[in-house]
Design a protein around this nucleic acid. Structure first.
Lengths: 318, 318
DNA sequence: AATTAAAAGCGAAACGTTTCAATTAAGCGA
DNA sequence: TCGCTTAATTGAAACGTTTCGCTTTTAATT
C-alpha cells in the first residue's frame, strides 16, 4: 500500500510538500499541486486515516449507535442525521450490538449519537464521563454530560387521547410497551393526564414489549377474559397491529366494535385495513436537529434546538 | 483525554508494561495486570483507535456500504453480516451516500462490503485496484479483484415464472426495475428463459425503477392503453404493490381479473390484500455467507460459499 | 547589481500505540 | 556464594501523517 513517502519520492519533493499539496494548502502553487495529485492518483495512494486521525486528534466522523437495523423506525432518522452531517463534510457511521461496544471502547468518532435500548443506564453513565459529546435519543439521564433529545411523546399522546375522548370513547385502555423506557413512560403519562383532565378513569392497562407478537398475546388474553374496552390506545403501532389482527380473526370489527390507536406511524399503519390512526413524528427533521446539535457540540458553539413534535394521523381504526 | 503514558505514570511502570497488561499478554503476571487495568479504568483511559490502527496496520473493522437505510430489504442482510462478524470479534460499520465516499477514500476498515447502486462501475473498478478486499452484492464486474456475491436471481425467477405458467396464465408481462442493474437483468433473464422453454412469448415489457411510485405510473398507463395482460411478473415487490394499488382503485380484482407477482418478499407483501406472491431470500443467511467470505478473504484462507437461493412464496395475488 | 520581500519547499518533531530486543530481577540447584 | 535459567520489566523504534518554523529560491524594487 502506497504511502505519502512513495508519492514524495516519485514527485522528487519532500513529504511535507506532498501533504500540503494534497490538502490544498495555498502555499503550494497550483501547478505543483496538480502534478503531485496526479502522481498520488496514479500510484493509488490513499491516505491512512489512522495516521491522520492520530496526528489531528479528530476523525470528522460521528457514530450513530442504534438497537437494530430492523425496526421500521430508524431509517428516516438516520437519513436526517446523515443529511446534515455530510452537509458539513462529516462522515456518519452506524453500528449495532456488540459492534457498538467495540466502537465505544476505542475512540473512532468525534461524537456519538445513541438510540439503543440495549445499552444500560449504567454503562451509559460510565462512558459519558469519558467519551464526549454524546447525544441520547431514547431516554433521559440526569446528572450526566449526556445531551438528551427525545421527542415530545407526552404532548403527542396527550393530544391523541383528547381526540379519542372527543370522539366519544369512555372505556379506554392503554397498552404499554417496555415499561421503563422513556418512550413508554411519557406516552403513558400523556395518556393518563389527558384522561384525568376530563375526569375519566383508565379502563385497564396491558403490557407488551413494543412488538407485534406481544400485541397478539395481549389481544388473545383480552378476548378470553371477556373484559373488552371500547378503545385501546397503544404505545406503538406494532402492538396495535398485533392486537387488531387477533381481534379481527376473532370476529371483532374495527372500529365498529372496538377502537385501536398506535404511535409512530410506521409504513404498515396506512396499509393495514382499517388504516391505523397513529402519531407521525417527522423523523427526518428530528435527525437533522440531532445532527445540528452534535455539530454545535463538536464546535463548542451553543445553539438551541426545539423538541420535535408529533402530528396526529387520525385514520379509520377508531 | 488520558493516554497510556498517564496510566504508566500512575502505575509506576513503563508504557510497554501497560500495553502488555491491557492486551492480556501472558508475560505480565496476573496481579500486576489487574492493578494496571484498575488504574486504567479509574482514570477513564480509552486506547486511541487511531494510534493502534496505525501501528498494527489493521482495524478489525468491516465497512458495509449500502444505498440507503430506507428500503425494506437491507436489515436482515445487515443482521446476518453483523452476526458473523462480531462472532469473530470484528466490528461492523455501516454507511451510505457521501459518507461512503469519505470512508472509502481513507482506509478505515480492513474490508468492504458494497451494495450500493449509486456507486458507478467506474469508481468501483478504480477503488478495487487499491482497496482490498471488497465484496459486491449488487452486480458482477469482470476483470477486477472484486468478489461478487449476488443472489441467484435467475433461478428463483425462473421457478416463479414456471409456476405462473403452470397455473394457466399465458399473456404474461414483465415489469422491469432499473434496467442495467444486476438484479433486474437476471430476474428478467430467468423470466424470459422460463417462457421460452415453454414456447411462450413475452406479452409485454414495462419499465419502472423498483419503487412503488413507478409501479403506479405503469399501471395507470396500462389501464389507459387498454392492453392488459393476464399476469404481470414484477422485478420486485414494491412495484408490484404500486401496480396492484392502482389496479384495485380502478376496479380490477386481483387475482380474478389480473395476476401480479413480486420479488423480495418484503414485509408488506403479506400484509397487502391480496397477499402478494413473491420470492423470499433468506437474507440473514446470505449476510452470514458474505461475512464468512469476507473473513476468509481477510485471513487469506480459501473457502467456498454457495449462492443463496430463493424460496417461492406463492400467496393470493395470482 | 544590490537589497528586500514574497513564494516555495523542506526537516523534524509530534500524535499514541505496539512490539522487538535487551536489560534487570528473581529463583534455584550445587 | 556463584552461576544459570526463567520471569518480569523496559527502552526505543516504528507506523504515516500534519504542521511549525526555518531555509532556499524567485521575483520585484531600487
Amino acid at each position: 500500500m502506497a504511502n505519502i513517502k512513495d508519492v514524495a519520492k516519485i514527485a522528487g519533493c519532500s513529504i511535507s510538500t506532498v501533504s500540503y499539496a494534497l490538502n490544498d494548502d495555498k502555499r503550494i502553487p497550483e501547478v505543483t499541486a496538480l502534478r503531485i495529485k496526479k502522481i498520488a492518483n496514479d500510484i493509488g495512494y490513499l491516505p491512512s486515516a489512522a495516521a491522520r486521525n492520530l496526528k489531528k486528534k479528530n476523525t470528522r466522523t460521528v457514530l450513530v449507535a442504534i438497537s437494530d437495523f430492523g425496526g421500521p423506525v430508524y431509517h428516516e432518522l438516520l437519513d436526517g442525521i446523515h443529511y446534515e452531517l455530510t452537509k458539513h463534510s462529516y462522515t456518519m457511521i452506524v453500528s449495532t450490538g456488540s459492534s457498538t461496544d467495540n466502537l465505544l471502547k476505542e475512540r473512532m468518532a468525534d461524537g456519538t449519537i445513541i438510540s439503543d435500548i440495549n445499552i444500560s443506564n449504567q454503562t451509559l453513565k460510565q462512558i459519558s464521563k469519558i467519551l464526549k459529546p454524546i447525544i441520547i435519543l431514547d431516554r433521559k439521564l440526569d446528572n450526566t454530560d449526556l445531551v438528551d433529545m427525545t421527542i415530545d411523546n407526552y404532548d403527542a399522546m396527550y393530544r391523541l387521547t383528547e381526540d379519542v375522548i372527543i370522539k366519544g370513547y369512555r372505556k379506554i385502555a392503554f397498552c404499554h410497551g417496555v415499561k421503563k423506557t422513556h418512550d413508554n413512560e411519557y406516552r403513558f403519562k400523556g395518556f393518563k393526564d389527558a384522561l384525568e383532565n376530563r375526569n375519566l378513569e383508565i379502563f385497564a392497562e396491558y403490557v407488551g414489549n413494543f412488538t407485534k407478537i406481544s400485541g397478539t398475546i395481549i389481544a388473545e388474553e383480552l378476548i378470553k377474559s371477556n373484559q373488552l374496552p371500547e378503545m385501546i390506545v397503544c404505545a406503538n403501532d406494532e402492538m396495535a397491529i398485533g392486537i387488531m389482527e387477533v381481534l379481527q380473526t376473532e370476529g371483532y370489527e374495527i372500529p365498529k366494535n372496538i377502537g385501536v390507536s398506535g404511535f409512530d406511524d410506521i409504513e404498515l399503519a396506512s396499509y393495514f385495513s382499517p388504516k391505523l390512526s397513529s402519531v407521525r413524528i417527522n423523523r427526518f427533521e428530528w435527525g437533522r436537529k440531532v445532527a445540528k446539535t452534535m455539530l454545535s457540540l463538536l464546535t463548542k458553539e451553543k445553539i438551541v434546538v426545539k423538541k420535535e413534535h408529533g402530528e396526529l394521523k387520525i385514520r379509520d381504526s377508531y
